[in-house]
């Protein structure tokens, strides 16, 4: 059995005349942490939005867990096991921790269509378990998100990915807005998840973080993948050369030149 969790082939997204993503071929295996790097506007977040069905791709194919998938919306992607920590956090400020963790997939006692009765007790219990699993410490889960620090918010967003039976975790710049201590906390959570065998895609600008946490680095430039590097066969300067366009891997020269 193949251990490839996610594979994309020719993933493309055009916004009118803007080619935000062009022919992205990508794969990630079980237990692997892959970094996606690139300048602003290189297509990193666009790539993630196509995988998670926040947007519908222009063309290309996606395989997940061995099967070809066509997610209609983010909920389908989540139900299939792709959990995402978005750059914009995707948390509702006025809701508390359990409400946010279960947003869009609430546990219910009685099914009555949109008026299904919420099972608050079960959601609180699962929230506490989820937080424990990731090592996230939140002082009071009944607090609303707006009363939390940036680090706590990010921890809630990450804990959300771990609370459910995820098969792939995608993090879009999870520490971009955090201080040193909070960044360390988030990185610890990523290590914990990786240790549990969860495949993680990490979008980051932080070279130290990428070198520290990831096994492989995929570089995007101008909407295209220009390099796929093993961490132990590269270094920071080399990666920067690919990001800035000073270098392009031989197998990607055709696409990069296009």
């Amino acid at each position: 059995m193949s251990d490839i969790v996610l594979k994309t082939e020719g993933l493309t997204k055009h916004y009118g005349g803007v080619h935000a993503l062009e022919g992205a071929n990508f794969e990630i295996r079980r237990g692997e942490c892959v970094a996606i790097m690139g300048d602003n506007g290189a297509g990193k977040s666009t790539f993630v939005r196509q995988i998670t069905a926040v947007e519908q791709r222009t063309s290309g194919r996606i395989w997940f867990n061995g099967g070809h998938v066509e997610f209609a919306d983010p909920l389908e992607a989540r139900e299939a096991g792709i959990e995402t920590v978005f750059q914009t956090l995707a948390l509702a400020d006025h809701l508390n921790v359990p409400d946010n963790l279960f947003l869009g997939r609430e546990l219910v006692k009685f099914r009555l269509g949109p008026f299904s009765i919420l099972d608050y007790k079960a959601m609180r219990k699962a929230t506490i378990e989820g937080l424990e699993k990731t090592g996230v410490k939140i002082p009071n889960i009944s607090n609303t998100i707006q009363n939390m620090s940036g680090g706590q918010r990010q921890c809630v967003a990450i804990a959300r990915t771990a609370t459910f039976k995820s098969k792939l975790i995608i993090m879009d710049e999870p520490t971009a807005a955090l201080g040193v201590q909070e960044t360390a906390q988030v990185e610890n959570i990523v290590r914990t998840l990786k240790g549990q065998g969860e495949p993680v895609i990490l979008i980051s600008h932080n070279m130290r973080q990428v070198m520290d946490l990831c096994d492989r680095i995929v570089v995007f430039r101008r909407g295209r993948i220009v390099a796929n590097l093993r961490k132990d066969e590269t270094d920071g300067q080399d990666v920067v050369a690919y990001i800035t366009g000073a270098k392009t891997q031989a197998e990607y020269e055709d696409v990069a030149a296009a």
Binding site: L75, L89, A92, H94, D99, L103
Partner: peptide, 20 residues
Amino acid sequence: TVYGKHTYAIGSSEAAARMS
């Protein structure tokens, strides 16, 4: 109910509600 939770979530952050 789920109805109530989603009503608050949309008002709190429509983008977050959509992404969820």
